[in-house]
Amino acid sequence: MKKDIILAGVGGQGILSIATVIGEAALTNGLHIKQAEVHGMSQRGGDVQSNLRLSSDPISSDLIPTGGVDIIISLEPMEALRYIGSLSKEGWIVTSTIPFINIPNYPDTEEVIKHIKAIPNNVMLDVETLAKNAGAPAQASNMVLLGAAVPMLGIEYEAIKEAVRKIFSRKGEEIVNSNLAALEAGYQYSLESTK
């Protein structure tokens, strides 16, 4: 088993909490992990990404080679496209459709969506609405996105749920349940849309 993932978003959106959950699940499953993060200046509202690598064999590089990316998981649609040049021909894009517009020259949103649709393997979802409908707060949107990526991850859904329980447990039962509900909403949406 080997999955190379790019997590993408804008500084402050919380892509690293997705990485934390996947990392926890992978570690419990005895997988090898490497995860390169971005700290420092770019966190201030700029584009951020994290290279997350999972494998049953030892992993050499902290960075994923161009063309080696299996999944782009993005909290922002244009940010998903930023890494398209690294995505393998068979790779997946799982992205939120809600644009984060903090620059004057943000491209036409409909065009951005159209470009993502042109990639054969894509899952696009309105993470905030799905979170809301699942009774979860907007902060749990990233768990909706993670849920949508679960079918491509190569890790059992149950293991991801367990990791969510473990990571959020210190915040109380209510937070755990709303994050699990958000995760489930994304998971079901993804299963439905990739049928």
């Binding site: 804008v10 500084g11 200046m41 770019s42 966190q43 201030r44 509202g45 700029g46 584009d47 080679p65 161009t66 063309g67 080696g68 990316v69 244009m78 940010e79 496209l81 930023r82 398209i84 040049g85 690294s86 995505l87 393998s88 021909k89 790779g91 903090n102 620059i103 020259n105 943000y106 491209p107 065009e111 951005v112 470009h115 990639i119």
Partner: peptide, 20 residues
């Protein structure tokens, strides 16, 4: 040889960091 990948998309513009 490089690995095969999708073409880069030039719709993407840069998003520099900014003061909060």
């Amino acid at each position: 040889e490089p690995l095969k990948a999708h073409e880069s998309d030039d719709i993407v513009v840069s998003r520099p960091p900014a003061l909060c």
